[in-house]
Write a protein that binds this DNA or RNA. Structure first.
Length: 759
DNA sequence: AGCACGCCGACT
DNA sequence: GTCGGCGTGCTC
C-alpha cells in the first residue's frame, strides 16, 4: 500500500497531480507542500489523500512548506469558483495562495537609531548636526535622521560604526490594531438602530425597543454594550457571543441614510463574538474618509487590503488574518481570498458596483463570490447599497436574501429635489452644452456662496474628432471606437485600450492644416465653457486622468470636500466614494449617455449612476437640488429618477427583461475571440457567435444584435444565457463551445451568474 | 508559471 | 548558413 496525495498546484492546471507521500511524512488535506514539477520545485496544496496498492511510478512529495494550511471552506471556495467561472482549478487556487513572496521576505526590517551616550571619537560639524538632531534620545529612522540633520546617510552610518549611535530594530507598527466594538460613538437614529438589530438578529427575532429608555450618554445605545439588551428584559437579546444570523442580507438605504453606521454595528457584534469581519469595497471607495469613519466608530483605523499595500506589510497583514489577529479587514475584491481563521461576517459595500467584476485571469464577481464564501463559512453576508443591482433585489424579493431597508435619510435630511431640463425645449446655444436653466441655477448657487457639481460621464475634451475638409473621423487602430481628444494631453486617446497618438496639426488623411473639429463634449470642454461663463470662479475638473496621479487627485478631492472650490466638473469619479458636504446643486449634463449602448445592463447602470450622483446634492439639513439635462424626459430611467420611484423602475426593468426572454438576474457570459478568428469565420460566411446552436434556452447577443466591442485586437461578445434553475450552466457552455467549430487560438468564456442558483 | 519544441524572417 | 520571434503544449 502506498500513500498518494493529490496535489493542486497554483498554475493553470485543471486537475490535481498525484504524488507519493514519502515514508514518515504525515499530510492532511489543506497542507501546503513542495513538489517536483518537470525540472523544478513548486508549491501546491494537498487536495486529497488516498491509499493505492502496488508500487507506483509517481514522483514523491518533497516536503511540507511552513505555511498555514488552507481551511476547508477556502478549499471548497476554490473548487466552487473554478467550476463556476470555467477557470482551471489551479488558477483559482492561485488567487488564494499568494505565498510570502521572496522579494517581500528579503525586505530588511527597518532599523532605527538613537544616541548611545558615548561620545564619538571624531566630532566633525556634520556629525555634530546629527547628534543634535538625535539629542532627544528617541528612536529615529536612519534616513529621516540624516535628512533632518541635512547630511548624507554615510555620516549616520559612520556614527553607528563609531558607537555614538546605536542601531535598534524598529518594532514594525501593528498592521491590525484591535478595533473596539464598544468605543463611544454617536447614537444611531431609531431607524438605524432597528435596521442594525434586524441585520444582526435575523428573521423572527423580536426587536429591542428602538429608543433607549435610560439613555446614559453616547455609546449607551442598546447595541453598544454587550449584555445590556438582556438586562432590559425586552425579549430576544443580542447576547455577547451569539453569532449573527447567517445568510445573505440586502441592506438597502437611500444615499445619506447612514448605512455604513448600520453595518458597523454588525461588524461590532461580530468582533464582540470573537470572530473576524471583512468589509469589501470597490477600490475607488476605499478612501481615507472611509477609514476615518471606521476609526470614529472603533477607535482605530481598520487593516486595509488593496493593490497599493505591498511588500512586507502585505505579508504581515496576511499572516495576521490567518492567525485571527486582524479582527476587521477593509479591502478591495482580492481581500475576499484572504485566509481568515474564523470569519464571522462579510460586508459588501456598494454591492451594485461593476468594479467588483474581475475581468482578467479568473473572471469573477466579488459580490457573488462573497455570497458563496459566506455560505461556506456559515456566516452572514451583508450586501449594502443605495441602488442595489437588479439581481440582488430580485433575490431579496424572492426571499433568497433577507431585505433590510433604511427608507429615510439620517437626521431628517431630505432627498434632493430633482428636475429635468428638456433639451428639445431649453437646449443650449449651438456649440455649447450648458442649457440656460442650468446656467441660471449655477449662477444663483454661486450667488448664495454654495458649491455646484456639473456631471458628465465622459473624460477628455471631445469624444470624436473629424476633418472638416475630407470628413475623416479618427478611430482607434486596435478597437472599434472613436479616439477621444484630450486637449490637456494634446492627444487623441482610445478609451477602450489606452492607445494614444498626438493630436495632428494636419489631417492625416487629406493633409489639410488646422481643419480638425471636435464633436461633442467631454469634461474638459465643459470646464472651458464654465470658465467662460464664470471667469473668476474656482473651477476644477475631476476625472480619472487627473494630472499628477492618484495622490494629487486624493488631495484635490479632499480640498473639494472642504469646500475649496465653487464648481466641480466631474465624471463618475465624483459619483462614487468621496462625499462633498458643501455641495448643494448637481447638474447632469447628458443623462442619456449610456442608455443606447446595447449593453443589457445599460438602463440599470445609468439609473444607479444618476441616482448616486444626484444624491450627492444637499448640505446638512438643507435638501439639495439636481437638474438633469435630457432629450428623453419620458424614458423609464429618467422618469424613475425624477419621481424618485426606484421600486417602479426595478419592477419595470425586471418585467422588460422577462419580456425579452432574459432572466431578471443576468446570466451573462463573455466570449472573447481574436479578430483573426472572427475574420476567418466570416470568410466562411459565418458569424462566429452563431456557428453552433447555443445551449437550450440561451440567447446570444452577437454581431447581429449588438455592435461588438473590439478591444486590443480581440472581439468581445456577450452571451446572455438563460437556463433553468439548478442547471449546470458550465456544462452547457462547455458543451456548446465543444460543438462550435473552434478556430485556432483560445476562446475564453467568463460567466457572471447569480451564484445562489448553483449552491 | 516556466521551459521546451518548432517553424518562419533578417542577420553576424 | 544560424539567431530569435512567440505560438503551442506539457508538467504527476
Amino acid at each position: 500500500m502506498t500513500d498518494v496525495a493529490e496535489i493542486l498546484i497554483p498554475l493553470a492546471l485543471d486537475t490535481a497531480y498525484s504524488y507519493v507521500v514519502p515514508e514518515g511524512l504525515r499530510l492532511a488535506e489543506g497542507d501546503v507542500v513542495q513538489v517536483p514539477l518537470g525540472p523544478r520545485e513548486t508549491v501546491g496544496v494537498v487536495w486529497g489523500l488516498a491509499h493505492t496498492a502496488g508500487g507506483s511510478n509517481l514522483r514523491p512529495v518533497t516536503g511540507r512548506v511552513d505555511a498555514p494550511p488552507l481551511s476547508e471552506p477556502l478549499r471548497k471556495l476554490v473548487d466552487w469558483i473554478a467550476r463556476y467561472t470555467l477557470a482551471p482549478k489551479g488558477s483559482a487556487l492561485a488567487m488564494v495562495l499568494r505565498l510570502p513572496d521572496e522579494a517581500a521576505a528579503r525586505e530588511t526590517a527597518r532599523v532605527g537609531v538613537r544616541v548611545s551616550g558615548k561620545t564619538p571619537a571624531r566630532a566633525t560639524p556634520a556629525r555634530r548636526k546629527v547628534l543634535e538632531a538625535a539629542a532627544d534620545g528617541a528612536l529615529h529612522g536612519k534616513s529621516a535622521l540624516a535628512k533632518a540633520a541635512g547630511v548624507s546617510l554615510g555620516v549616520v552610518d559612520g556614527l553607528i560604526d563609531d558607537g555614538a549611535l546605536e542601531a535598534v530594530a524598529v518594532e514594525p507598527e501593528a498592521v491590525a490594531p484591535p478595533p473596539d466594538p464598544d468605543h463611544p460613538r454617536v447614537p444611531l437614529s431609531d431607524a438605524q438602530e432597528a435596521a442594525a438589530i434586524a441585520l444582526i438578529a435575523g428573521p423572527g427575532t423580536a426587536l429591542l425597543p428602538a429608543a433607549d429608555p435610560n439613555p446614559a450618554g453616547p455609546g449607551a445605545g442598546s447595541l453598544s454594550r454587550a449584555g445590556e439588551g438582556a438586562s432590559r428584559g425586552s425579549g430576544e437579546s443580542l447576547a455577547h457571543a451569539e453569532p449573527a444570523a447567517p445568510g445573505p442580507v440586502l441592506l438597502e438605504g437611500v444615499t445619506g441614510s447612514g448605512k455604513t453606521e448600520v453595518y458597523f454595528e454588525a461588524v461590532a457584534h461580530c468582533v464582540r463574538a470573537g470572530r473576524q469581519a471583512l468589509i469589501l469595497m470597490p477600490e475607488i471607495a476605499l478612501t481615507a474618509q472611509f477609514l476615518d469613519r471606521f476609526a470614529a466608530r472603533f477607535g482605530v483605523r481598520p487593516a486595509a487590503w488593496h493593490s497599493g499595500v505591498g511588500g512586507r506589510r502585505r505579508e504581515r497583514l496576511r499572516a495576521a488574518v490567518a492567525a485571527g489577529e486582524a479582527r476587521v479587514v477593509v479591502g478591495a475584491r482580492s481581500a475576499l481570498f484572504l485566509p481568515f481563521r474564523k470569519l464571522g461576517l462579510i460586508v459588501v459595500d456598494e454591492e451594485h458596483e461593476s468594479a467588483y467584476k474581475q475581468e482578467d485571469g479568473v473572471h469573477y464577481h466579488a459580490r457573488d463570490m462573497a455570497v458563496v464564501r459566506g455560505r461556506l463559512e456559515g456566516c452572514p453576508v451583508v450586501l449594502a447599497s443605495a441602488t442595489p443591482s437588479i439581481e440582488s433585489r430580485v433575490n431579496a424579493e424572492r426571499g433568497r436574501y433577507r431585505h433590510v431597508r433604511l427608507p429615510e435619510r439620517f437626521g431628517g435630511r431630505r432627498l434632493p429635489d430633482i428636475r429635468a431640463i428638456d433639451m428639445r425645449l431649453d437646449g443650449p446655444e449651438r456649440g455649447r452644452f450648458l442649457s440656460p436653466p442650468l446656467i441660471n441655477a449655477v449662477k444663483a448657487n454661486l450667488a448664495a456662496g454654495e458649491q455646484s457639481l456639473l456631471f458628465l460621464n465622459r473624460r477628455g475634451y471631445a469624444p470624436l474628432t473629424l476633418c472638416r475638409a475630407c470628413g475623416h473621423r479618427y478611430r482607434c487602430r486596435n478597437c472599434s471606437t472613436w479616439l477621444v481628444e484630450h486637449r490637456f494631453r494634446k492627444a487623441l486617446v482610445c478609451h477602450q485600450c489606452g492607445y494614444a497618438e498626438p493630436r495632428p496639426q494636419a489631417c492625416t488623411e487629406c493633409g489639410t492644416f488646422d481643419n480638425l473639429t471636435a464633436c461633442g463634449p467631454g469634461v474638459e470642454r465643459i470646464a472651458e465653457e464654465v470658465s467662460e461663463l464664470f471667469p473668476d470662479r474656482r473651477i476644477i475638473v475631476l476625472s480619472s486622468d487627473f494630472p499628477g496621479g492618484a495622490e494629487r487627485l486624493r488631495l484635490e478631492l479632499e480640498a473639494v470636500a472642504a469646500g475649496e472650490c465653487d464648481i466641480v466638473v466631474g465624471t463618475q469619479l465624483v459619483a462614487k466614494g468621496h462625499n462633498f458636504p458643501h455641495l448643494t446643486l448637481v447638474g447632469v449634463l447628458d443623462a442619456d449617455i449610456g442608455l443606447t449602448s446595447g449593453d443589457p445592463r445599460a438602463a440599470e447602470r445609468t439609473f444607479q449612476l444618476l441616482q448616486q450622483v444626484t444624491g450627492r446634492a444637499g448640505r446638512g439639513e438643507r435638501p439639495g437640488r439636481a437638474l438633469v439635462q435630457t432629450y428623453q424626459p419620458t424614458h423609464p430611467v429618467i422618469a424613475a429618477l425624477l419621481s424618485g420611484d426606484a421600486e417602479r423602475f426595478y419592477a419595470e426593468e425586471v418585467a422588460a427583461r422577462e419580456a425579452a426572454g432574459l432572466p431578471p438576474f443576468g446570466r451573462l457570459a463573455a466570449l472573447i475571440v481574436s479578430a483573426a478568428e472572427r475574420e476567418a469565420a466570416e470568410a466562411q460566411g459565418q458569424a462566429l457567435a452563431r456557428t453552433a446552436e447555443p445551449p437550450p434556452g440561451a440567447m446570444v447577443l452577437g454581431p447581429a444584435e449588438a455592435p461588438l466591442a473590439l478591444v486590443r485586437g480581440r472581439y468581445r461578445f456577450r452571451l446572455l444565457v438563460k437556463t433553468e434553475r439548478n442547471v449546470d450552466l458550465q456544462s452547457y457552455l462547455r458543451d456548446w463551445l465543444a460543438r462550435a467549430p473552434k478556430p485556432r487560438g483560445s476562446v475564453r468564456v467568463a460567466v457572471d451568474v447569480d451564484p445562489q442558483s448553483f449552491l
